[in-house]
Each structure stands twice: as C-alpha cells, then as structure tokens.
C-alpha cells in the first residue's frame, strides 16, 4: 500500500450526477450493467426467505399463469428466472441444479442439461440466441418475504 487514504469515488446512488471536471478523470462513465426491464412492476410475494434451501430453487406461480424459478445460492445470491425450459417447453427450471461455470452463476435444465446464466438468463452454449434465453425477473426482499417483480404492461 502506498499513498492513499481513500479513493475519491463516485456515490453509487441515483443522485443527479454533478459534473466535476476537476477531480475525476474523464471517461468514468457510470453505466448500468444488466438491469431488470425498466418501468413499473407488480411485486408478487413468493415465499419467506427462510423457506429457500441454499443451492436449490422453487417454482413460483405468477398472476396470469406465468411461472418463475426462484433460487438462493450458497453464497447468498438470490435470482429469479422463468420456470419454462426454452429447449423443452416444460416448466422445470426450478428443479435444476445450480452452480457456476467460469464464475457465472448457473442453473442446468433437469431435462437435457442445457446450462443457463442465472444473472442474464442466456443459454451458455448459445448466448446470443434470444429463442433459448430464460427471461429474468427482479427480486426483492421485504420484511423477510421474497418478492418477484413482473413488468406491468
């Protein structure tokens, strides 16, 4: 460690960005990574957080008949993707095995074992094909209850 007390960092909240040409080097553009679909959402209560078993998923019935697969990983991360396996059309993703591939958190379809990113929903073997990507859902935890966000039309 050398001569630093603290880095002059940017605050990571949705503040109105203030231009500060003096301190910050150029090009430190703060742009979001993967964000859930913007816009208002309906938040559907799925279950108590303590119901989730680390490493496994549960299926959540959504209003309108859709289904989400909700996962708690052993490292504490919580993800939700669509429950329907795009390869088979069966609602089975919640029963898949989780893990990581090269650090990317994943779930494998229990049917033909295609592997999907839990973060982006992309199929690892066909990442640019939207036909075989799992839609992802936002998750939130409030008062110990996990909620899943469905974009409102």
């Amino acid at each position: 460690m050398t001569s630093l007390i603290t880095p002059p960092e940017v605050a990571p909240v949705e503040e109105t960005p203030v231009e500060d040409v003096a301190v910050r080097p150029a090009r430190t553009v703060v742009r979001p990574g993967i964000l859930p679909a913007p816009g208002p959402k309906q938040w559907v209560a799925a279950c108590s957080l303590h119901v989730l078993v680390p490493g496994r998923g549960v299926a959540v019935l959504l209003p309108g008949g859709g289904q989400a697969a909700l996962f708690l990983l052993p490292n504490g991360m919580i993800y939700a993707v669509d429950n329907i396996d795009p390869y088979s059309g069966a609602a089975v993703m919640s029963r898949g095995l989780t893990g990581d591939h090269g650090g990317e958190p994943t779930v494998a379809s229990p049917l033909l074992k295609q592997v999907f990113s839990l973060r982006t929903g992309a199929a690892l073997d066909d990442p640019d094909n939207p036909e075989v990507a799992l839609p992802t859902y936002s998750v939130r935890v409030h008062h110990g209850v996990v909620r899943i966000g469905i974009p409102l039309p």
């Binding site: 990571p12 964000l35 991360m77 993800y79 935890v141 996990v146």
Partner: peptide, 24 residues
Amino acid sequence: GTSSIDAQDDGRLAVDLSDGTALL
C-alpha cells in the same frame, strides 16, 4: 447498486440489488 436492506429475524440481512437480484 444497493436498493434496500431488509433485516431478517435471524440477524441476517437481505440486500436488494439494482440489477434485480438480491443477496442474503
């Protein structure tokens, strides 16, 4: 980013992240 922090009965914290995921 961090959107909210929800204290659980067992003392742990559920943290909602702005990318739509959450973390226990």
